[in-house]
Design a protein around this nucleic acid. Sequence first.
RNA 1: GCGUCUGUAGCUCAGUGGAUAGAGCGUUCGACUCCGACUCGAAAGGCCGCAGGUUCAACUCCUGUCAGACGCACCA
Length: 569
Amino acid sequence: MFDVKLEVSNLLASKISDVDQQQIYDMLETPPNPEMGDLALPCFKLSRILRKPPVQIAQDLAAAIPENENIERVENVSGYLNIFLNKSQFINKVLSHILKAGETYGSSDMGKGKNIVIDYSSPNIAKPFHVGHLRSTAIGNSLYRIFEFMGYNCIGINYLGDWGTQFGKLITAYKKWGNEQAVKEGLIKELVALYVKFHQEAEKDPSLEDEARQWFVRLEQGDEEARSLWKWFIEISLEEYQKVYDLLDVKFDSYNGESFFNDKMEPVIKELEEKGLLKESQGARIVDLEEDGMPPCLILKSDGSTLYATRDITAAIYRKNTYNFDKCIYVTGVSQSLHFRQWFKVIEKMGYEWHKDLYHVPFGTVSIGGEKLATRTGNVVLLEEILSKAIEKTLETIELKNPHLENKHEVAKQMGVGAVIFSDLYSNRIKDVSFSWDEVLNFDGETGPYVQYTHARACSVLRKAADAGAELDGAFDSSLLSSKEEYQLVKILAGFPDKVKQALENLEPSILTRYLVDVAQDFNRFYHEHSILVDDEALRNARLALVQAAKLTLSIGLRLIGLHAPERV
RNA sequence: GCGUCUGUAGCUCAGUGGAUAGAGCGUUCGACUCCGACUCGAAAGGCCGCAGGUUCAACUCCUGUCAGACGCACCA
């Protein structure tokens, strides 16, 4: 991809002494208003270096910059050097590049040979998959696609919550009040009911807790009955999760959950011991983090059993050994931030240089009606329910607007699910979200369906053009795209590669989500103002090239945030 | 109490030190004999929580403060 800023900064640097090209490059910015130019150099910082007033610098530069291939003219306005690009040249370069790059537009090989581990979704077995899990799943999946697009080899891990004392409770409850038939019919719903009943009964009869503990001990010791029930619960849960993953079009490369590390923690504890990091405190074994300004990291309970930090440390070491990752990314709620800071620090204290490659990607908390989500109190909305309602609503719209659409059920699925994912990835991930049916089912404005519709609209025009025998052979006269709507659309399309990079660097898919809305808006303005399929063949071809470039960018971008881009909706 | 995060238009949110702070929803007005109106245009709506400081320049950085969320030892 050619880089105008690079070319312009080179030219400017050659006119300014004592400042190198990179500095100029970093100073160049986009003016707030297109009438002020395409690029601007604020000259205030240069003022100190050159010991001249900013206005003077801008003036001198304006006089020193000759017209050339790239630059149409420059102006100095109160200390800013405003640069107007040669529009036709710019449009030509951008569109040629996009059309040539095709499906690879915006991609790179920066990650070649590097492995990225992404830990996301990670639901707790025997618990329903609700809105809260969507965030981790959607963000993780998008990061996976973005890194892959940039040449990295990604390993998606669903770190299932498939171990812990809750299984003792579940087995106890099942033995007491459950039966095979009811679980086979009710699936997770029945498991949750058993779990809830356990807690209700345990309030009256505390001996149930002992019984649960015993069952968990039997499970740990490999008791056959306990293990087969445990495996069965996992099986049931995974089957249900898989339905959701299929709908979301999300995949994993590994399902190694917590239980996978049961037999791998002991050497790690030994290692911590040998490195002198373990300390005894109130009967438990901890890594003291006082000098790091954090509470201690608990490694072993006073009864000698392990904790989640133990498991996470073990898993990280295992992943480093197995995948030799360049980065290992954990997509979990912000409430776990301290936990991650703590055990990342423990990895550092163990002497592992790669502690700096561990990233916690936190996201804000989901609530419903001001209350926290809680399986036990029933304050949850199941993701499946949301998805099916969204799909249903989309289907209604299709029946209304385009009843003869061939694969309407497939399209309704892609748009309905897309709407849900899109709204989840729309704002910065750190923001708390309050779930509301009205918002999730509102498809107007800055939404997935809006972007998908825009993409389909572009496809439709291209289809019509192809039917009429127009050929898109890459040749077009960029000087014919002279309106401000056309230029604006080209400019936003040119920014795509940088947006992908930003999303990757900030581990923030919302950067792309919002970018797509901007593209769709600019496309629709252009579409509204100008006829594309005009009689003038040269003009038609130029506009078709622009439509094709926009269509490509939209479809690639949608894919990167985990959405489909149907050609007809 | 300590720590982290968040406070921008009525609502939901953008804005990684630069010029006049932007979108969508909602409200009001307007555009379909026209390539798909799930579209587009216009208007109204702002002490950027508050107070100091740094800087030529602060919504952006620093300090304090208020409000909310989350976390702070044997759950994950």
